[in-house]
Design a protein around this nucleic acid. Structure first.
Length: 196
DNA sequence: CGTTTTTGACCGGCGC
DNA sequence: GCGCCGGTCAAAAACG
């Protein structure tokens, strides 16, 4: 379908984006620290808080976020293994940063994070009746990948995994953010969409 | 008209 | 060695 313009309409689809001052994907902060496989479970009901954490940083205590290691992560045998080893403090460098979010989204799978994604594949996975979609950043030279999948237990939830680091600025420019001096985490407080 | 979506084929890794 | 499984490619269609 068509790429939905950011900040348009704003129905129930982008409810938490619109109602919340925080953007969940601080693109400017990508690639700051040595990231590892971080899996957040965003237990956000309608109007619930949404984390603006950064890959590589841990969940800040100011929002109801639960870091979990779901089955999905266990399924990624090779990658998850190396990431887990890295998380244990033994794994050496890995070139790709991966994070996974599990957010509540009733009707829309692809949430707007400010980037433009091009779908390049769809597959159905063994343990889930729902297909998994594969996206890639449409900007040339940017190899960031993204996979979106509905939760098999709760179809109301969507699991979104990001892989890689953007090497260009987002179409939606972050206009202000804060950084925690202690941990180096970034918290995006707002975004600016061009032409809005 | 350019870009994205769609969809099956293809391919490589891993387990048996 | 073979088959399953997950990820990607690529061609054609669809969309704005």
């Amino acid at each position: 379908m068509a790429y939905r313009q950011p900040c348009s309409g704003g129905s129930a689809t982008s409810s938490y984006f619109a109602s919340r001052p925080a953007a969940p994907f601080p693109s400017a902060a990508f690639g700051t620290a040595a990231a590892q496989l971080d899996v957040f479970e965003c237990l956000s009901d309608e109007g619930g808080a949404v984390p603006a954490a950064v890959p590589g940083a841990f969940a800040p205590p100011l929002m109801p976020v639960e870091r979990v290691v779901p089955d999905a992560a266990a399924g990624y045998s090779s990658h998850a293994r190396s990431a887990a080893a890295a998380a244990a403090g033994e794994g050496p460098a890995r070139t790709t940063d991966r994070i996974a979010f599990r957010v509540r989204s009733d009707d829309e799978e692809v949430l707007h994070d400010g980037y433009k994604w091009r779908k390049y594949g769809k597959k159905s996975v063994k343990n889930s009746p729902n297909p998994r979609n594969y996206y890639r950043c449409s900007t040339e030279g940017c190899n960031v990948k993204k996979r979106v999948e509905r939760d098999k237990d709760d179809p109301r939830y969507v699991v979104t995994m990001y892989e890689g680091v953007h090497n260009h600025v987002s179409p939606g420019t972050i206009y202000y953010a804060t950084q925690d001096a202690a941990s180096g985490r970034f918290f995006v407080a707002g975004m600016h969409q061009p032409g809005h």
